[in-house]
Deep mutational scan, measured.
Amino acid sequence: AVSDRLIGRKSVVMEAISPQNSGLVKVDGETWRATSGTVLDVGEEVSVKAIEGVKLVVEKLE
Rank of each mutant, 00 (worst) to 15 (best):
D4F: 10
V27R: 00
L61C: 11
M14V: 15
V46M: 01
V39T: 12
S22G: 10
K49Y: 08
E44P: 00
E52Y: 09
S36L: 02
G53L: 03
K60R: 14
K26A: 10
V54R: 12
K49F: 07
S47I: 15
V25R: 00
G53V: 03
S22K: 03
G37D: 15
V27P: 02
G29D: 08
E30F: 10
E52S: 10
I7D: 05
V54Q: 14
Q20W: 14
S11M: 11
A16G: 07
L40I: 11
N21P: 02
R5D: 10
E44G: 02
T38Q: 15
E59F: 07
K60I: 06
K55P: 01
E15I: 11
M14P: 00
E30G: 06
V2C: 14
D28Q: 06
G23S: 01
V58G: 01
S36H: 01
K26T: 10
I51N: 03
G53D: 06
L56W: 00
V13P: 00
G29C: 11
K10R: 11
K10F: 11
V57M: 06
E52Q: 11
G23F: 03
M14Y: 10
R5I: 08
I7L: 09
W32C: 04
T31Y: 14
K49E: 06
V48F: 00
K10W: 11
A1G: 11
G23K: 00
V27E: 00
S11Y: 04
S47Q: 14
D4Y: 09
L24Q: 07
S18P: 01
N21W: 09
G37M: 13
R33P: 15
R33W: 10
G8A: 02
V13M: 02
N21Y: 13
L24P: 01
V46E: 02
G8T: 03
I7F: 05
V2T: 11
K55I: 15
S47W: 15
S47F: 15
E30H: 10
K60L: 07
T38Y: 11
L6M: 07
V12W: 08
A34L: 00
S11Q: 03
G43L: 04
A34Y: 01
R33H: 11
T38I: 09
E45C: 15
K49M: 13
A50P: 01
T31H: 08
L61A: 09
A1S: 13
K10S: 09
P19N: 04
I17Q: 01
E15S: 11
M14Q: 07
N21F: 11
T38F: 10
E45I: 15
G8R: 01
R33V: 15
T38P: 01
R9S: 09
T35D: 07
V13K: 00
T31P: 05
E45D: 07
V25I: 08
S36N: 02
G43R: 02
L40Y: 05
L6Y: 07
V25W: 00
G8K: 04
W32A: 01
S22D: 15
L56A: 03
L24C: 10
P19K: 04
A34Q: 02
L61N: 07
G8M: 02
V58T: 02
G23T: 00
K60F: 04
G29F: 05
D28R: 05
S47P: 02
K10C: 15
S47N: 09
V57G: 01
V13H: 01
A50G: 11
G23A: 01
E15G: 05
V25G: 00
K49N: 06
A34E: 02
V2Y: 11
A1C: 14
G23R: 00
K60V: 05
D41K: 13
S22F: 09
V46K: 00
W32P: 00
L40G: 01
E30T: 09
R9I: 08
W32D: 01
R33G: 10
K10I: 15
R9K: 13
R5F: 08
S22V: 14
E52I: 13
G37Y: 13
V2M: 14
S18I: 06
G43H: 04
V58N: 00
L40R: 02
I17D: 03
G23L: 03
K60S: 07
S18F: 07
K55V: 15
L6H: 04
V27L: 12
T38W: 10
A16L: 09
Q20F: 12
V13A: 02
K26S: 13
E52G: 04
M14L: 14
E52F: 10
I51W: 06
T31Q: 07
L6Q: 03
L24H: 05
W32K: 02
